[in-house]
Design a protein around this nucleic acid. Structure first.
Lengths: 126, 126
DNA sequence: CCGCATCCCTAGTGATACTG
DNA sequence: CAGTATCACTAGGGATGCGG
């Protein structure tokens, strides 16, 4: 779907192999995906809740980002057949297993981003 | 430059703060950046060497990716004033400090990417 | 309430020709 | 050798309106 980058020298022929790091990178390449994962790591959320938590995102975009995370099995979508409809999103085991990676990235980012302010919020802590 | 994603709820006013995880993500968001960092983590490379190591990349793109990594202080550019010109690229301390993050991402990717083949090359091991 | 379909727009990539 | 400049192209984001 996104851009899959073969490692180059190890690519066989037309069978392009994917570097695991690049795979991980591409998983969260969507503009809102990391933030979505972060919110869902704290609690299950309904569609409209997520939209409110992500100021500026439109329904269409939110839907697409969630669908892609679903396809990658990072996010679980639970549909309640009620009227009015109710849909809840949560992390799958795979999604939960990604939280430590988020933490590492956050730690490194905190140490290395040129911050005018000295302290920045850790994204995975409450 | 790239897309900087404010965390949303903690954004002050027009002063948008950046989530450290998102910062890290954006640093390596270029299509070839991770692969470039990987190659440079193994050894210093000249411009043409890098181009040969990245099949399909054009000079213009390679230049821009390198310039951006330079601006972020991930990569050091050493120019030798000779004829013909010679330029060598290597990792800065910041760039080197990122290698463990690459490793974590690689490990997670290896465990979770749906691989038809059972084993995939670790990107940072020789 | 949730989401899809559609269209527009921009950023980023790709390709080529030219230069110190 | 190591770029720069230019243009074309594409993927992805954003906005809106309709539908179950």
């Amino acid at each position: 779907m996104a851009r899959f980058i073969p490692q180059g020298e190890i690519v066989p022929k037309g069978q392009e192999e994917l570097c695991p790091v690049t795979y991980t990178q591409n998983l969260t390449a969507g503009k809102w995906k990391i933030t979505i994962l972060w919110h869902l790591s704290k609690q299950t959320r309904r569609f409209n809740e997520l939209q409110r938590l992500l100021p500026g995102i439109s329904k269409g975009i939110l839907t697409r980002q969630l669908r892609e995370l679903e396809e990658e099995e990072m996010v679980h979508r639970e549909v309640y057949k009620e009227v009015p409809p109710k849909v809840e999103y949560s992390l799958t085991p795979k999604g939960k297993s990604f939280i430590p990676v988020l933490n590492i990235m956050g730690e490194w980012g905190n140490e290395h981003m040129k911050s005018n302010q000295k302290e920045l919020k850790p994204v995975t802590k409450d």
